[in-house]
Simulated scan of single mutants.
Amino acid sequence: MAGGTMVQTITPELRRWIVEQTVAGFSPESVLDAMVKVGWRQELAAAALEDSLREHRRQRGDGRGTGVAPVVVPARFQAVARLPEISLSPSLLCLDAGDRQVRVLATLSLPRVVVLGGLLSDEECEALIAAARPRLARSLTVQTQTGGEELNPDRTSNGMFFTRGESELVRRIEARIARLVNWPLENGEGMQVLNYPVGAEYKPHYDYFDPAEPGTPTILQRGGQRLATLVMYLNEPAEGGGTIFPDVGLEVAPQRGNAVFFSYDKPSPITRTLHGGAPVVQGEKWVATKWLREREFI
């Protein structure tokens, strides 16, 4: 490989180089970093690494009897067997959410994104805001070094968490979500409500927990990895506040009652689920977020 402008094609030569580097003792993470440093886009480099190591492992079996140590695909490149998923067909415009019909406004394959219309009623949006308002505090983010929480300058909202099932309103919405995404209700984290005043934002980030961080094993004890996110819009700021996906040039407008769902089958940038909340320019923004885990969230 050479620096400068390059045609980013995953060739047999590149696959051999990846395997040779890994067999020689370089970690998959260091191979990925080397590719990125010479100009490869991270998601394409990760895809080449994942495919090459999987094929090598398939050809070599577990490495026994070959004189070659087995190559282990790192956790962040291993896809889960099953994901929360909204069942769609090409002609399906509405979804049965049990107590409500929800419209399909837009879909994207990579990343897997579904924009939903009318997931919540106006009355439910107002009720969530009213219940959350007295409990707001400066939003925290997960501290990946320890598994705890911390203030983060990239996240300038105020927020709170509802306990799962804590009220009739929360239970109704959680049951609706579980039906829509075909995922056990108990595998969901408690719903979080966030308020963004003028100028507040959440800079682009990933929702999964990075396996390379020392605090991740502690975080995963509560229900495994995050697999999907649902962001519900509770009001409409006068300007700004969209949900952005920088890797694919997508922005979802914050329209009251609507929602955006996206899933990620591995904790890796290859999922292209980098996303953020754009700054609020005028007014304020209220959203409710539901994260879905592998197992029961405790």
Rank of each mutant, 00 (worst) to 15 (best):
S121W: 01
P70D: 03
L32G: 00
R171S: 12
G148S: 13
D96I: 14
K290T: 01
L230C: 10
A253W: 11
Y264M: 14
A259M: 07
L136R: 00
A47D: 10
I18F: 01
A24Y: 05
L116Y: 12
E174W: 02
I219P: 07
V31D: 04
H205Q: 07
A34R: 07
S27L: 06
E166A: 09
R135T: 04
G148M: 06
I244M: 13
R64V: 03
D33H: 13
L169T: 01
R256D: 03
S268C: 10
Y208N: 07
V248N: 05
M191H: 02
T216W: 08
T141R: 13
Y233N: 06
V170S: 03
V73G: 05
I173P: 06
R222E: 14
P111T: 15
A75L: 15
V198A: 08
E13T: 10
D154R: 12
L83V: 04
Q59I: 06
D62E: 10
T144L: 15
Q42L: 11
L169A: 00
G98K: 05
L108A: 15
Q192N: 00
R293I: 05
V7R: 11
T9G: 06
S268H: 04
V113G: 09
G3L: 08
V104F: 02
E150S: 13
V170Q: 08
E124S: 00
L250D: 03
E150P: 00
T141M: 15
E124A: 01
A175I: 03
R295M: 11
D51R: 08
V19K: 07
S27I: 03
A288Q: 01
E13D: 15
P211I: 04
Y208G: 09
V36Q: 01
G188W: 01
R135C: 11
A48D: 02
P246Y: 14
G63L: 02
E85F: 13
G277A: 13
P246H: 11
R272I: 12
G257D: 05
V7W: 05
V181I: 14
E85A: 12
P254I: 01
E126R: 08
D207L: 11
P211K: 08
E149A: 15
I18T: 02
L274I: 08
V80C: 01
G224R: 11
E296V: 14
G242L: 06
W17K: 13
V280P: 02
V73K: 04
N187H: 13
N152E: 06
K285Q: 09
D210P: 03
R164H: 13
A2P: 07
V113E: 11
T11D: 05
G257Y: 03
I219T: 13
V170A: 03
P184I: 05
G224A: 07
T66L: 06
V7I: 12
A81D: 05
Q8D: 00
G148E: 12
L230M: 13
P28T: 11
R60F: 13
P111E: 12
A97P: 07
P74E: 03
L169M: 00
T107V: 14
W291E: 06
D33S: 12
D51K: 13
S263W: 10
E236N: 15
R293G: 03
V252A: 07
I270A: 15
G215R: 10
R295H: 15
F261Q: 02
P254M: 01
P134S: 02
T216G: 02
K203I: 08
